[in-house]
Amino acid sequence: MKRQIISILAENNSGVLLRICGMFSRRGYSIESLSAGTTEDPTISRLTIVTTGDSATLEQIEKQLMKLVNVREVRLLPDDCIKREHVIIRAGNDARTRTDLMQVANLFDANVLDVDDNSLAMELTGEPGKITAFIRLVQPYHIQKLVRTGLSALERE
């Protein structure tokens, strides 16, 4: 079993996400994370899907994706591709934890987005490992809300 990042270019129309996710679901392929958005061409979306499977399954996923009419391009990205995730966390429950959290944010170069008397909202963009480490260090300071995007990735040239 291998973790694989798949980058997909698809026509940006209603239903395309459903078609792709539906294909994964009915054929029993996993989606660990998914991120989608338009590209420089507003009629085209790029999706990044993280999946796992043996080599035969990954071959099938690629081929089945290519059969979808709205899908233009499918790439299985190599491990050394550019990978980014984004997280927004609101944490802290009193003035002291808030100060401690400022230090954690500094350590990771995270941006502070919002502050109130007892808590702090921070954002961080980085490789998935860095995001996970950041969340781990924020964990003791009472995480109130957390949103983490799926992975976005591009090949290196």
Binding site: G15, G22, M23, V69, N70
Partner: peptide
Amino acid sequence: GITMPITKH
């Protein structure tokens, strides 16, 4: 929606 898995498109 219903026929998505049973049509080519």
